[in-house]
Structure formats: structure tokens, C-alpha cells
């Protein structure tokens, strides 16, 4: 059975919202569409293609970057500005064809365990703007506290994502493990660390892919803050990841995935801490 029984091609956000409102549960917004084959519906839907709605582009504003929801992963990779770090996540994202087609909004709104950008947005303290009759911004912690589509009522859309720039004294780290280069993520980790006079004064650390939904790791963060940056400090913190529901991915044991996750988190924190110390974001 086909995923879709019809499609509409709105020319603006207002048109897209009107179509989705009218269609209700029958309507389905389509971003890049590359993950749609993983969705199963009882009844075919009406596709509302967002690619012509004017939702792509990256603008530097308010101490960070405002990214249109339909901005492609390639555009994230090619963008460059002081404090911009999402190019690193984009660089390791599947293949050129899928980087060209997939969008940031699509990757974060219907979250599969292996989606790469939720962990980065959690670590970076992003906020997500929802186009609505009453537009609102939702911070990443709330957005990813469950399946994000739960937040969208009929006629609402993710419009843009605000990512704060990584400033002087801060660093960002991102690690991704896959079986082969272009495969689904088995473990991802992202960290944003602030260092003042050698002491870690702020940390946001997130883990993904190895568990069903991406999460922040508050115990790990707390174990870092107030400590002088060092490998043993990182390792002590990573030991606090705790017991999780580890996914058994691609035939690997849960114990191996747990190990992979702890390595990813340790490396992401170390990268972020060293980048902060060396002043290179």
C-alpha cells in the first residue's frame, strides 16, 4: 500500500498550514522525505510538500543562527561563520544524495533513534519555533522530551531552529559511530563545554542512537562542572551514564552498544573541553 493517496504543493507557510488544518489527521507534512519509508500508516495520507514554502536558509541573529526548518543538511555543511558548529554534524551525515535531500526540520521533528541532529541541538541548547495561530518557541529539552510531533496540533509546523553560537571559552564536540561510513548511527554524542581558567564551568552533554530517544545526561554534566579539565575527570563523569535501555543495533550486543556509547560521550566531551581551552570552538 502506498504511503500517500494524494499530494498538495503549498507555496507558503500559510498555505501549508491551511492545507494541514483542513486535512487534519489525513494530512502529512513532507520535508526531505528520505525517512518516510520507515513510517507505517493504516491508511494512506495526503502529502503536504513543504519544499516550496520558503522555509530554507540560515541567518545569523540574536547571538546565534536562525535555521529554516527546510534547510538541507548540505546547506548546514557548507555554511561557515564564527561559532557555527553544525557543519561537523552534517559532514558525517549519511551520503551526499541524502545530505542534499534531508532537512534539519525533518531530522528532528519525527525522531528515529538514529537521527543525528537531536543530540547536537540538545547539547547546543537550541530552541525550536513552531508556526501556529499562536507561534511559540520550545527549548530543545522540552522538544525532545518525547516524540516532537506530539507538540504539533493540526495546522502547526516547525518553522525554524535557533542555535546559539559557540562563544569564546566554549567548545563543541560531536562523535558518531557507525558500522560503515554511511550506515545508521549506532551511537552519537554531543557536548558543549565552557572552561574558565582551566575549570569547567558549564556542560551540556547528550547521547543518542544507542538508546531509543536522545537524552541529556545531567549526572555526567554535574560531574564535570567545577572540575579542572582532565581525562580522568571525563572518565569519572562518563561512568555516570548509568543503566539504559541499550538498543541492539545491526547484530551487535547491547553490551557492545553500551561500550560504544560511553566511548562516544567521553570523546565528545574531550573534544569540546580541548576546543574550549584552545579557543577554536
Amino acid at each position: 500500500m502506498s504511503v500517500f493517496k494524494d499530494f498538495v504543493l503549498p507555496r507558503s507557510v500559510d498555505e501549508a498550514r491551511a492545507a494541514l488544518k483542513q486535512l487534519g489527521a489525513e494530512g502529512m507534512p513532507v520535508a526531505g522525505g528520505t525517512a518516510l519509508s520507515f513510517l507505517r500508516h493504516k491508511e494512506p495520507k495526503v502529502a503536504v510538500d513543504l519544499s516550496r514554502a520558503g522555509l530554507s536558509g540560515i541567518a545569523a541573529e540574536n547571538g546565534g543562527f536562525e535555521i529554516g526548518a527546510m534547510t538541507s543538511i548540505t546547506a548546514l555543511r557548507e555554511f561557515a561563520a564564527p561559532g557555527w558548529v553544525l557543519d561537523r554534524v552534517a559532514h558525517r551525515f549519511v551520503t551526499q544524495q541524502i545530505r542534499n535531500q534531508s532537512t534539519l526540520g525533518g531530522n528532528i521533528t519525527r525522531v528515529f533513534a538514529w537521527c543525528d541532529f537531536p543530540v547536537a541541538l540538545l547539547a547546543l541548547d537550541a530552541s525550536i519555533t513552531i508556526a501556529s495561530d499562536t507561534p511559540r518557541a520550545v527549548d530543545a529539552d522540552e522538544f525532545f522530551a518525547g516524540q516532537p510531533v506530539r507538540l504539533l496540533k493540526a495546522g502547526e509546523l516547525v518553522r525554524s531552529i535557533h542555535v546559539p553560537a559557540v562563544r569564546a571559552g566554549e567548545g563543541f564536540g560531536y562523535r558518531k559511530h557507525t558500522r560503515v561510513e554511511a550506515d545508521f548511527s549506532q551511537a552519537t554524542a554531543a557536548a558543549r563545554v565552557k572552561v574558565e581558567k582551566g575549570v569547567i564551568t558549564g556542560a551540556r552533554v547528550a547521547l543518542g542512537a544507542s538508546i531509543p530517544m536522545p537524552v541529556r545526561l545531567p549526572a555526567v554534566e554535574q560531574a564535570l562542572v567545577g572540575r579542572k579539565g582532565a581525562i580522568h575527570v571525563v572518565n569519572e563523569a562518563v561512568a555516570l551514564i548509568g543503566t539504559r535501555t541499550w538498543r541492539s543495533v545491526a547484530g551487535f550486543s547491547q553490551d557492545y552498544i553500551r561500550h560504544l556509547a560511553s566511548v562516544a560521550v567521553a570523546d565528545a566531551i574531550t573534544d569540546a573541553w580541548k576546543a574550549a581551552v584552545e579557543g577554536r570552538a
Binding site: 499530494f7 513532507v30 522525505g33
Partner: peptide, 11 residues
Amino acid sequence: RTVNACLTFAF
């Protein structure tokens, strides 16, 4: 830009 035609809906 290159895309995988198999993952792209005709519309």
C-alpha cells in the same frame, strides 16, 4: 543537487 530518485517522490 544529486538525490536518490528512489527516495524522492515524483511530486
